[in-house]
């Protein structure tokens, strides 16, 4: 378990890998080629970063024929945030998120 948590933090520590996750957040299910197009990195570097993200279970893959599609998998991040952040901050964060919702719904009315 703690090994899995280490993998997540190690994977997230690198800005290139976070950029890959952001790209999948914008459009899920991309191929290696599609991910390379948007990045200022060599194909080799992207491949290496994706392998690390897969090992950390932050990217899930689905094969379609010979095409490998990459999906953002936020489940491990939820496991970490629920275990640590929520334990201490739940009350305050819920209050903040309720406030944010209330303020945003005011905006909608205008």
């Amino acid at each position: 378990m703690s090994e899995a948590v280490n993998d997540v933090f190690r994977a997230l520590a690198d800005p290139s890998r976070r950029a890959l996750l952001d790209a999948l957040y914008k459009r899920n299910g991309q191929t290696l080629g599609e991910l390379c197009d948007g990045m200022a990195m060599t194909r080799q570097a992207v491949t290496k970063h994706l392998a690390l993200l897969e090992d950390a279970n932050l990217v899930a893959v689905v094969w379609r024929g010979r095409e490998k599609l990459h999906y953002l998998n936020p489940v491990p991040i939820h496991e970490i945030s629920e275990r640590w952040i929520s334990k201490y901050e739940r009350g305050r964060l819920s209050a903040l998120s309720a406030l944010k919702k209330a303020l945003e719904s005011d905006d909608d009315g205008e």
């Binding site: 899995a4 299910g29 279970n57 899930a60 999906y71 998998n73 489940v75 491990p76 496991e79």
Partner: peptide, 10 residues
Amino acid sequence: VPPDVVYVTY
């Protein structure tokens, strides 16, 4: 068609 989302947990 490819799935819209894929979630994995161990």
